[in-house]
């Protein structure tokens, strides 16, 4: 069982991802904003983080910038989750240190595949 941290400011979004990942047998932790995400990550040391880009306050880019500077988070997989469909967003996310990229609305198959690929 792997520990996955899901950060999204929308509770329904978190519940969706939690449900899918728990069915796949993972232990899911939640964070409702960027600051919480950083604090939770430091507390639980997850195997994977799924990070909504668009959050009030500290956004996904801010979170990854903080985490990637810390020794414990240099290498763990972090997936960007975003409802923005603008071209170039994927490149920007990868350049910012994300290891995966999923757009909302998610297709469950795509989410499962990306998570398993990064946890393998």
């Amino acid at each position: 069982m792997k520990k996955v941290l899901v950060a999204d400011d929308k509770a329904t979004g978190r519940e969706l991802v939690r449900t899918v990942l728990e069915k796949s047998g993972h232990q899911v932790f939640e964070a409702g904003d960027g600051e919480q995400a950083v604090a939770e990550a430091r507390r639980i040391h997850p195997d994977l983080i799924i990070l909504d880009i668009h959050m009030p306050g500290l956004d996904g880019f801010g979170v990854i910038e903080k985490l990637r500077r810390e020794e414990g988070f240099k290498a763990i997989p972090i997936i960007a989750l975003t409802a923005s469909a603008m071209m170039g967003d994927r490149e920007r996310a990868i350049a910012s240190g994300f290891t995966g990229y999923i757009t909302k609305p998610i297709r469950l198959g795509a989410l499962r595949a990306e998570v398993e690929r990064l946890l393998a």
């Binding site: 899918v20 409802a83 923005s84």
Partner: peptide, 27 residues
């Protein structure tokens, strides 16, 4: 347009996701 698209996709995300989840009958 960018923010509109973002705002519209956010609720669709859960509608599409949960309806797919339900139709998988895992619950």
């Amino acid at each position: 347009l960018a923010s509109m698209s973002h705002e519209l996709r956010t609720p669709l995300h859960t509608i599409i996701g949960f309806s797919e989840l339900l139709s998988e009958e895992l619950e």
